[in-house]
Design a protein around this nucleic acid. Sequence first.
DNA 1: TTTTATTTTGCAAGTAACTTGCAAATATAA
DNA 2: TTATATTTGCAAGTTACTTGCAAAATAAAA
Lengths: 142, 142
Amino acid sequence: MKESTTKKLLKERKLRITTVRNEILSIFNDRNYALSFYDLEKELKTKFDTATIYRTINTFVENNIIHQIPLESKTAYYALNSVLEEDENSRKEHIHFLCRICRRTYCLENVIIKDLKINKNFRLESLKIIAEGVCDNCGAIS
Amino acid sequence: MKESTTKKLLKERKLRITTVRNEILSIFNDRNYALSFYDLEKELKTKFDTATIYRTINTFVENNIIHQIPLESKTAYYALNSVLEEDENSRKEHIHFLCRICRRTYCLENVIIKDLKINKNFRLESLKIIAEGVCDNCGAIS
DNA sequence: TTTTATTTTGCAAGTAACTTGCAAATATAA
DNA sequence: TTATATTTGCAAGTTACTTGCAAAATAAAA
């Protein structure tokens, strides 16, 4: 991701432009799958402190730049919000697809869910879907 | 839950029948929503050690008696498997419904999902769905 | 552009949520 | 009812974060 793009994004949220923030945003933007703290640490090992990376992740979540993905793993995973999700009031639902081969988690937009009939007397307001299977990349290899 | 029922369940899995196991199973059976370690601890505080409760939870997950529910919270939540889920080969998908008022998580069976169109080249094998909204109980009160 | 105010960072220490090792207690098998 | 195997309690350990505080970096004001 171009530095000018990350800077613009930070400025919009009235967040100070710093090196960690630029670099973490850039890493998120270069992947099309979700990242954990350890994924980020791998790339930023020597440059920044553990606490700084955690604090940056938290700042990004609070400012609607990334979202946490509910998986059964102990460590939290995060992915960039799509443009549609940036406005909290019009958050678009999407599917998280976990590949059982590479263990990567992708955000899939444009998945159509029709006719979800939930038990009566339960009022449905939003949905989070975790799909499991084989991703396009792993499917092509095998 | 009757003690004879919990004993039968444990015997089927070739697990030794112990007091913690009976009591934890019984607590799960008395609720229709998911429980965390802290929910269990509240009831079993004085009787059993922390490590014992955690070990019992893990034993139950390994033996397909309960399942972990993927939520964004830091602490794991667990619920009893339904009879249909007991056989690992015919695990039935169901929805987890998180009530935004009481924060309880219910397993809803019999939810019909039609026509989920996922991106091509992603091979879908299973689905986990976390619904949010208002449960029957909280809906009735308000 | 320099000064001032505010926020962010690094380091070390702290906390929450579990897990493990080991000897004693308990459950099942012989 | 003794022998074998598993489970439990206690204490210590680990993992995944979080917090306090002084120093450094960023942005706003002059």
